[in-house]
């Protein structure tokens, strides 16, 4: 038991990822020498400019990509491939266009490991529960192309959660939403993640964003990455009190932390648009 208390949930040890361009064979270093420990129950945001390898890091944790060198461990065991213990919410949601909202949310439960050993009734009940959780009742029989971007995003979130993963990996999940919806869903996300629950019951979350305020609002710590090659610039603990609500944005510490992160990435951000 004491072992699990000290051992991080996720550990990246000197992880480097290179890609070879298909025709030219030209090698690009996407991620260079990234070491990071994430504790169970932590909400960690990764921020950084475009091209800093945030998505690559997430794909490697998900097991969809293999590091060129270095190791990634979950609960002390190396990650060899994708698994339902690490749920992914993709940037563009990756919903199955031929399935209804309900069938999309139930896809993993019906076809994958999350539903293994569950009775059919329980599976359906769990799907219904998650439809309610993201307030999609009434849209269950619609197809992804028939619903709004905000609703699709909630379908993806419900699908992620219905599978009950230990680790939530989210790649700019709120990126396509308008500012108001985004604020509402940030708070919603914290509630679903288990902000009000005791620490042991919270899931481990890795959240990619380029929105600094979003990162500060959500995280226990923010990982700041820089690009070319993608590496970790700094890891900032976010010591704002939980549970957080809208008012936390008015907290002087909130502005201070946002400022600190901005200082770390501003040079690159300016260079990127120059």
């Amino acid at each position: 038991m004491s072992d699990t208390m000290t051992r991080p949930k996720l550990r990246l040890d000197h992880v480097t990822k290179e890609f070879a361009a298909p025709r030219t064979g030209l090698r690009t270093v996407a991620v260079s020498d990234v070491s990071l420990e994430i504790q169970a129950g932590d909400f960690v945001c990764i921020v950084g400019p475009s091209g800093c390898g945030k998505t690559t890091v997430m794909n490697m944790i998900a097991g969809l990509d293999k590091p060129s060198s270095g190791t990634i461990e979950i609960d002390g065991a190396p990650i060899t491939g994708p698994g339902a213990d690490r749920g992914v919410m993709f940037q563009d949601y990756a919903l199955f266009p031929w399935l209804t909202v309900r069938d999309n949310i139930g896809f993993g439960l019906r076809n994958g490991t999350p539903g293994r050993g569950m009775a059919a009734n329980d599976v359906e009940e769990r799907i219904s529960k998650h439809i309610e959780l993201v307030r999609l009742g009434g849209a269950e029989t619609k197809y992804p192309h028939q619903i709004s971007g905000g609703m699709r995003q909630r379908v993806a979130l419900a699908r992620l959660l219905a599978n009950g993963p230990d680790v939530l990996l989210m790649d700019e999940p709120l990126g396509a939403l308008d500012a108001q919806t985004r604020l509402i869903l940030q708070a919603e996300l914290l509630r679903i993640w288990g902000e009000t629950a005791p620490r042991e019951e919270r899931k481990t979350a890795v959240f990619i964003t380029h929105d600094i305020a979003e990162a500060v609002f959500l995280s226990d710590s923010v990982v700041v990455m820089s690009s070319h090659p993608g590496r970790i610039r700094a890891v900032l603990p976010i010591d704002l009190p939980r549970p957080r609500d809208e008012h936390v944005r008015a907290h002087p510490r909130f502005a201070q932390l946002s400022e600190e992160i901005w200082e770390l990435i501003r040079d690159e951000a300016y260079r990127a648009i120059a």
Binding site: R86, A94, G112
Partner: peptide, 21 residues
């Protein structure tokens, strides 16, 4: 769509079911 294949793999869906579904 490779993203859909990736999504199915992260849900622990076996290869045969990925082909079918």
């Amino acid at each position: 769509d490779r993203r859909l294949l990736a999504a199915a793999r992260t849900m622990g869906v076996p290869q045969s079911r990925i082909v079918r579904h």
